Amino acid sequence: MAKQQKSELRETLSTIFWAVIIALVLRTFLFQPFHIPSGSMLPNLMKGDYIITSKYSVGYGRFAAAPLPFPSGDGRFLEREPERGDVLVFRPDGDDKNFIKRLIGLPGDTVQMQDGRLILNGEQVQLTKQGEESFADRYGDDVLAELWAETFPNGNTHLVYDSQKNSPSDNSSGYRIPEGHYFLMGDNRDNSGDSRVPVRNGGAGMVPAENIIGRAEIVLLSVKEDFVLYKPWTWGNMRGGRFFERIK
């Protein structure tokens, strides 16, 4: 009887061990979930969204297996160049937090903001007004924003918010993107600490290629602030219509 119990225990421990190994491999090389903590990517991503990123789509940088270092060297192992307009998860240099923003500038590009309009390589990016929407800012106050469709030269189109005229982020000097780096911005343009803001001031700065973690693919589910997984009576606070929604 004792031998049978020991055999069952070994089998259980072996199953748990291999399950953990498989989960770590999947998380490192294929997919990783992330939680959206703010509204900097509105109107496309909401605070409370749980997203899935793909890692094979961009290659494997030094944070692919975080908190363990990934031996990628400079750049990314099996590196694939992301496209302008991709939504990427990354970690700024000198910061231990993950950011999620949209890829705006590739190595060698120049990026500038003029009167709240994005200037890419000397040309204003195409904008088409879609109307107005309101959203709750970080203080819970309702803010009215202009909704615009922004189309990059490669044809990728996404929605952006313009919620404040003549904001500090509406105008900037030109940024020249160095080799091996990327320039990323939030879609909620007046409420995003991104590559327009140095890391020392809470922004992302220029993002090294090896700091990219993955490309955001889908919203798995979305919850409101009063949702708690281990409290079933709060499960009604999931947002309907945001299950398995593709990220554009």
Rank of each mutant, 00 (worst) to 15 (best):
D115M: 00
D190P: 00
D170Q: 02
L184R: 06
S134M: 04
Y182T: 09
G94Q: 09
F99Q: 06
R102V: 01
L103V: 09
P178H: 15
P67K: 14
D190F: 02
E179K: 06
N154L: 10
E150G: 04
D96A: 02
G186H: 04
E123Y: 03
E150D: 10
G202T: 14
E81T: 15
G75P: 12
K101L: 01
M113C: 03
V199Q: 14
K165W: 00
R84I: 04
G180V: 03
G205F: 13
N171M: 06
Y161R: 10
G59E: 05
D190G: 11
Q112G: 01
F152I: 01
D162W: 04
N171A: 08
G105W: 02
P153K: 01
I119E: 13
E150R: 03
S163Q: 13
N191R: 02
A204P: 02
E179T: 01
G205E: 12
N154E: 12
E179N: 05
R196I: 05
G180K: 08
L120A: 06
I177A: 13
D162V: 02
D190S: 12
Q126S: 14
D86H: 07
P168F: 15
G202R: 05
T128F: 05
N188E: 12
R176L: 07
P69Q: 00
N156K: 15
I177D: 14
G202S: 11
G61F: 07
V199T: 15
L68N: 07
M185G: 11
D194W: 06
Y161N: 13
V197G: 00
Q164L: 13
A65W: 06
S134C: 00
Y60I: 03
V89G: 04
L103N: 12
D137G: 00
I100K: 02
I104C: 08
S167V: 02
R91V: 09
G122S: 08
E79T: 04
Y161F: 15
G174H: 00
D137Y: 07
